[in-house]
Simulated scan of single mutants.
Amino acid sequence: MTGMKRSGRFGKYVVLGFFLLVFSGCAGTYSLVEFEVLEPATIRFPDEVDQLLILNRSPVTFKVLSPENREGLERKELWILDTLVSNNVMRGLLYVLRNSPVKRYQFPIFLSERRLDTLFQQDLLLTKREVASLCERAGTDAVVSLERYSLDLEEHYDFYSAGDDGVADVAVVRNHYYIFSNRIDWAVYLPLNPRPFDEYTTIDTLYFSRISEGVFQGAPSSAEMIRELFYESGLKYGRYLVPVWAHASRTLFKGDGKLLRTAARHTRRGEWEQAFALWDELGESGDSTLAAKAFHNMAVYYELEDQLDSASLMIDRALACDSLEMVIFYREEMDIRLMNRREVVKQVIH
């Protein structure tokens, strides 16, 4: 087998946008390659959907809070809280849309038409006529609706006793932390559908420590905690709607033999073709374990070149030589990549 030249396809947006090589150092058996892959969205909009309307129709009601959290809260404070929630969940959602390679969804139209019910009813969905009217008015093809949200805050203390030489024990705070959690219900509507095209719920929880093991850590304000929680929820739902870049890493074998170590030095200097030639040589050696490691490394090379079929073949050749645990794990990861590839292409290329 001869080493292949770089195809120059690292800019191909369907799979790899760019990659970053991070190595664990000269010592050791492995090195790490980090890069980004494009993962498909969970749902796929129909081909005719080009423009999205992001609608906030969640009711502004005290029922978004648990009974203990809403006690003493005035209407003005409720509106301030709702503004904080709405702005940050939409900010997180917009961040994902703007950074997705699906350009037609990068600039959605935002609209706020809040429900007026105060009973927090779960079944007050938009009708087909209402969806068609919204899309016609906004010039959009689909409505992504924030249906409702809820917020809960808990404060926890853990104590331990501190006493000395017969002095009565005194309760001392060991841990003091806050738990912020939320639930957000979303729905996607299409003008011609009598029921929602998709419904999805995000449930998120964040912990904020004020005192840990008796040491004061400090904590952000309640407003900052709420801001972070709902921003993260917006990010999560955005990743549900559109393909996003995700961190990935692969491990290279670099020890156990002079040629592997030499190849590792080439990869550290970015000389991948030279490293590939050495792995190719090892693949034809009589040592099945070294051959398996070489084929594994060649698979990583092909994956970085966006040649997933060739990478998959190299993994199979590695497993035929030796069933190394790392190679078995790589086989599982590559199967997921191959399964996602066709869906990513469908979602990105329109």
Rank of each mutant, 00 (worst) to 15 (best):
F197V: 09
N88S: 12
D309Y: 12
S150T: 08
A138R: 07
I54Q: 05
D141H: 11
E199R: 14
V244L: 00
L38N: 07
A138Q: 01
I179Q: 05
I184P: 01
K236Q: 12
F276A: 06
S31W: 00
R342H: 04
S233T: 13
V173N: 03
A27F: 13
A311Y: 02
F253T: 10
I328F: 11
V242A: 06
Y13N: 10
T83V: 05
R342W: 01
T83C: 10
L235E: 06
T205R: 10
F208G: 05
F253D: 05
M1N: 03
F120L: 10
E284C: 08
N56F: 12
R148P: 00
V172S: 10
L319H: 08
E154N: 02
A292H: 04
Q121S: 14
Y160V: 15
R6L: 13
V167H: 05
F230A: 04
P191G: 03
P243Q: 08
N69A: 15
L146N: 05
L190T: 07
Y177T: 00
M314K: 08
N193A: 15
W79E: 14
T289V: 08
S66I: 06
A223M: 09
T289L: 01
L111T: 03
R174T: 08
R239V: 04
F295Y: 12
C321P: 00
V170H: 14
E136Y: 07
A138I: 07
S100L: 09
K254E: 13
L53A: 08
E232T: 04
V327F: 10
D47L: 14
E71D: 14
E147I: 01
V344K: 02
P59F: 12
D280L: 15
L65F: 08
L52C: 03
T289P: 02
D306E: 15
S31K: 05
T127Q: 00
Q274G: 11
N87Y: 09
A291Q: 01
C135Y: 05
Q121F: 13
G238Q: 05
L282I: 13
Q121D: 09
V60M: 12
E199V: 15
F253Y: 14
L229C: 04
C135R: 01
E281I: 08
D141Q: 12
S133A: 11
Y189Q: 06
L153G: 07
E199F: 10
D123N: 06
K254Q: 11
G139F: 07
T118N: 11
A246L: 01
G238W: 06
K12I: 14
F62M: 14
E224H: 04
A275Q: 01
S323Q: 13
P46V: 13
L97Y: 06
L32P: 00
F45G: 04
A138D: 00
E34W: 03
E36Q: 07
E305C: 04
P191T: 04
G25I: 07
I315W: 09
G3E: 09
P67M: 06
R137E: 12
L192Q: 07
Y302R: 11
A27S: 10
D204G: 15
S86F: 10
V300L: 03
W279V: 10
P108Q: 10
V327Y: 10
R44Q: 15
L38S: 10
R250E: 13
Y157P: 01
E130K: 01
G166L: 11
F62N: 07
I179D: 05
